[in-house]
């Protein structure tokens, strides 16, 4: 569905160098801090900026060969961009009908009612959560093959966030060949929905892993200085000095569990892994 190979984009204070893939039937997450390059990746992928190098494939075609008909297969939601705030939802419906040959108006209207989104109110008067819901709803209402969602959960409360993630799960269940590329700086949002996760930092992919492995096999080893000296370090990804000794990240939980039973093993979360990958020392 999506294939980025050594995609490069250089700005004065920022450089992107990214390789990423989203296979059919998968939900792929892109996690990173604000300013890490997530939106730049999405913009390049959609042809909104010109890359300085590398290649982009979208829906199995090089980006240059993507035409308007192909774009009918895409559903896109931006965190900081959408229809003009001066329009109402009532205004948007005929626009979407004109733009998308497969716009599902009954579904759109049903979801509007379910989420209690007002149709006569100007979008600029919507709350942040309402805007976020509307953007995602617009993206999924025309039976797209690929969703590209930039921080769709930003500004949503816990309940609304769950509702939105449920909607995305339903969307995926309807067709096995659909895919989603979703970004967030709140990784816990993605833990429950993504099949695999890319971590981006300062324009570079620093980690790519299946979510199950990330949550199951990536652990933190908490060691005294003596333990640290003795352990086999070949599977330690990052280490950080702590007051008690060392905290190290590994993706080989079983190895250390079996060979170093005295070492304290702590389960990781994606947020903790990101922090360690960014701040920890590479051995």
């Amino acid at each position: 569905m999506v294939k980025l190979e050594q995609l490069q984009k250089h700005y004065n204070t920022f450089s992107l160098d990214c390789t990423l893939q989203v296979p059919p039937g998968r939900i792929t997450g892109l996690v990173g801090q604000n300013g890490a390059g997530k939106t730049t990746v999405f913009k390049a992928l959609l042809g909104l900026i010109r890359p300085d190098g590398g290649s982009i494939q979208l829906l199995g075609k090089p980006l240059e060969q993507i035409h308007q008909e192909d774009r009918q297969q895409l559903g896109v939601a931006w965190s900081d961009s959408g229809f003009s705030g001066y329009l109402t939802v009532e205004n948007i419906i005929p626009i979407l009908e004109q733009l998308y040959s497969r716009f599902d108006k009954p579904f759109f209207v049903e979801q509007l009612q379910k989420w209690e989104l007002p149709i006569h109110k100007r979008i600029k008067e919507f709350s942040t959560g309402m805007k976020a819901k509307l953007k995602t709803l617009i993206a999924i209402s025309h039976h797209a093959k690929l969703l590209i969602l930039d921080e769709p959960t930003a500004g949503l409360d816990v309940v609304a966030r769950d509702e939105l993630l449920d909607l995305l799960r339903d969307y995926m269940q309807q067709d096995d060949s659909r895919s989603i590329l979703i970004s967030s700086h709140i990784s816990s949002d993605l833990e429950s929905i993504c099949d695999d996760i890319y971590m981006i930092d300062q324009g570079r992919i620093v980690l790519h892993e299946d979510t199950d492995i990330l949550l199951g096999d990536y652990v933190f080893l908490k060691m005294s200085p003596e333990q640290y000296e003795q352990v086999d370090k070949q599977y330690l990804l990052r280490c950080q000095k702590e007051s008690y000794g060392y905290c190290c990240l590994t993706n080989q939980r079983q190895f250390y569990q079996e060979n170093y039973p005295a070492v304290v093993i702590e389960k990781s979360s994606i947020d903790k892994v990101i922090t360690m990958i960014i701040r920890g020392e590479r051995l």
């Binding site: 959609l46 774009r71 959408g82 003009s84 733009l99």
Partner: peptide
């Protein structure tokens, strides 16, 4: 101007709309 406001063009050109169109 409305299209440009609040970075609206990023969304607009993610829709099935070409720049020429």
């Amino acid at each position: 101007s409305y299209d440009e406001a609040d970075n609206g063009n990023a969304f607009l050109f993610s829709l099935p709309i070409s720049r020429k169109e």
